[in-house]
Write a protein that binds this DNA or RNA. Sequence first.
RNA 1: GCCCGGGUGGUGAAAUGGUAGACACGAGGGACUUAAAAUCCCUUGGUCCGCAAGGGCUGUGCGGGUUCAAGUCCCGCCCCGGGCACCA
Length: 1000
Amino acid sequence: MQYDPKDIEKKWREKWRNDKTYRVLNDASKPKYYVLDMFPYPSGAGLHVGHPLGYIASDIVARFKRHNGFNVLHPMGYDSFGLPAEQYAIQTGQHPAKTTEVNIARYREQLDNIAFSFDWDREVRTSDPSYYKWTQWIFLQLFDSWYDHEAQRARPIMELLARFEIQGWHAADTAALTGDVEEELGAFTAAEWKAFDSRTRHRILQNFRLAYLSEAWVNWCPALGTVLANDEVKDGVSERGGHPVERKRMPQWSMRITAYAQRLLNGLDTLDWSESIKEAQRNWIGRSEGALVRFNLKHGAGDIEVFTTRPDTLFGVTFVTLAPEHELVEVITLAERREEVMAYVTTAKNRSERDRMADVKTVSGVFTGAYCIHPFTGKEVPVWVGDYVLGGYGTGAVMAVPGGDQRDWNFATYFGLPIIAVTEGADIGKEADERKDATISSEGFLKGLKVPDAIKRSIDELVKIGAGERRINFRLRDAAFGRQRYWGEPIPIYYKDGVPYALPESELPLRLPEVDKFLPTEDGEPPLARAANWNYQGHPLETTTMPGWAGSSWYFLRYMDPHNEGRFASPEAVNYWQQVDLYMGGSEHATGHLLYFRFWTKFLHDRGWINFDEPAKKLVNQGMIQGVSQYIFRIVPVIPDGPREFTMLRLNLNGIQGEITLPAPTKFVYVSADAKDYFSGLGTRLPNSTTFLPINYLFQRLPVDVKHVQSGELLLGPFIDSLNVDANEEVQFIFHAGIISRLNGAARFPGVQETFRFLTGDIGRPRTEPEVEKMSKSKMNVVNPDDIISKYGADTLRLYEMFLGPLEQSKPWDTNGIEGTFRFLRKFWNLFHGADDVFGVSDEAATKPELKVLHATIKKVSEDIEKMSFNTSVSQFMIAVNELGTLKCNKRAVLEPLVITLTPFAPHIAEELWEKLGHSTSVTLAPWPKWDASHLVEDSFSYPISFNGKTRLQMEFPIALDAKSVEAAVLADPEVQLRLEGKSPKKVIVVPKRIVNIVV
RNA sequence: GCCCGGGUGGUGAAAUGGUAGACACGAGGGACUUAAAAUCCCUUGGUCCGCAAGGGCUGUGCGGGUUCAAGUCCCGCCCCGGGCACCA
């Protein structure tokens, strides 16, 4: 029997399913290993070849650990709430739950085809009420918690209430209770607290809750009645529809992730994650040390607070800039400047933040007419508004030091504001001096100090005169948690007198209501406002839903105990499975998902629900699989029905050779990539001064479906079929050697009647031009694993994806090499089958060379899996099969252990052969073979003999021979002597079992 | 601008400081076959010398350095990919 994956793979898929081979029990008697993949969003496009790359790698590790006696948790599920399903629902009216269901079914089928060892009994879906019940429950815990910065952990809000009743709240509590990173709060005594009405108390508590309602800036699009993400806004209008967008402050549910900023930063040091991901998180958290400085206003009470990392440059301050959103803008602007300032503010703040940040070149701003007082010099400092200052970062105001900060310099130069040099050796006529190792040269007490000393000294001075203090600032902002959307978890909150209250736990899950349309209401309320009876005991329920990252922030816990109805997971399950041992996923989640994931884990730990505070010990990012698009070129008439006849040059390998008149060129004139250069000067003159194409023809580059391309050549038949041309319509191809065309299915070379076959055989096929880029439908370069599986089988796909190269490296998907892995499997199969294709293995004892191959393979593959170097393990398997083939080895003693080692990579073929070898239980349960070093010992080693590091000849010596004897033997060799030309070597280096190097 | 990756044959790639290019694709040649498929064998970094056997030189983005020995370590550049950012 020839190796035929089709039947084998189907057979085993069914058997695994029926036998529940991959079921995992919480069996505390075995050591555990938790392998987790980032679960997919089930999009309508289905799985593409990029998805399985990580899944296959983690599956190999999971299976390997299982063979090595671990109880392995390796689950899969779906991040099934999300925008695409909702958009589709808006367009088609289909309920997102329905389309999600259909998409999941397709994903499941595709995943099953690749033989992942998932325990599907543990599948979770974030959109399933039995799952989101617990997402809502965690939300309620967050709502019920505050962060104690002294104890560095979250605590129940009750404990804060108790504290208020005894101590009230004082300015001195700011550092302890809000960690200096949150909003200011007015002081109150214990007596005052007790006297507050419930509304006031709730309002105050919002400042402490980890899930809280606050005013936040959003991109509001009145026409769409919804809030847009930064990247949905371009040039102040919505990307879809081009409707105006305004920045608006709206009540929003937020997560106080900033409370965890320092711990999220510290925790990184304990994690076995890639340095690039950790660095990305560090940058995102963006801790900076500096000072808070207060500039008193010249007129009226109050001050402008600025945060600066460079208080040492204070003497260089020549103005202060406020963000357009800054609340003081309206207060301090002089009446006569009001109109101009407000006009600027309106335009500036309505630019999206991304726009403002991306546009470095344009400087814009306006003078408020107001002044503040420099804390050290007492001089008046003008206050400006500029959109280079962002409202959401720091205090929303900067002290501008044009001599020390380039952005301030640009602003000052543009508006003609004074620039003072702050550092020695600065050339402020050209640019700001941002060096952090400079010496301060400005006037005052900082003069002559190095920057770090000057920073310290300036803060001391600020504290002394009460104009500022040391401050740590984080770039990280609290995460917006509410979404004006339908397809997400409802937030379990109801409102009484406008005050938000937690829904009782017994009311969970708060199910998504039915609505007539998935659109906002006419007055801009989110879709949930359309639901009938959307209230709790007569009180309105929250109408926004949770963002996509809510469900994925804790899913790793649910897999541990997915059907528990009384808790998100039982303490026993959590204690047993603990952290994820290996987390596999894309690096695009570096700052989104992975940060929230860590945040929720820390929170659940603080409140005592779990006993660890990082979700995943080890993280591996699989590289991106890019698509290889294929482009062909086309000549199209600019006027579709205009005159068609034109003259072209006849081309061949030597270039241009005569003219061809195409009597009736059609709309389908394609140009092979190897001839495209002749068209580069389109409409202009070619080197021999003959116009090639009339000016009213266009030369286009367009992608062709990668399915219609093989080895860089266009497959004419399938391609022409895909064009939907009438059978009598002509399609022409121009390429290097000439022109071919097809009419009525037959093709002819101009002037000569020929068959199609002649043309493809003789002239070849039109070449396409490849380009590596992101996989996308529009580029027609999406490769779906199903096609490959139906052609070669899942085992080949698994092996090939691993063989492509190092897991973490991005690489283009290219099936050119896939034959190699398929051939390998066939050769592997043939080792067990005689020339007549009948299964047969021998029970003879293995020979020494056979054992060497076997043990070298076990060793290499075992070590490579631990290192996640799967491409090299596949190579080792190939080497083993080639060598065993040469040795004509069909011995059970060699092949049986080899089958086990191949199982993690190619489980179907391994199961089939294992069964043929006479086993009745699954090979997935077989213990991993141990390699024995004694089989790998060599008797002798062929030393490369090099002269000055250049290898010249080989000499074989027994391994046991010591360095001295090797040296003597080498020098005694006549050929070595010949090369020495009588000279005696300066030095001879002998590295046993490695090399001999003679220095002359 | 900053941060993180990465530059090795025609292609994907391999290489504890120790024989650069394993393994695979592709290409070329051959065997088997009516033919095809499949399989097997040989050649395959570049270049030069040689009828041949064989040999020389050169070669891991570029320029230096350390070392008996560098794809690998150090210094300085260039290029490509990805991420972040008027972050004060």
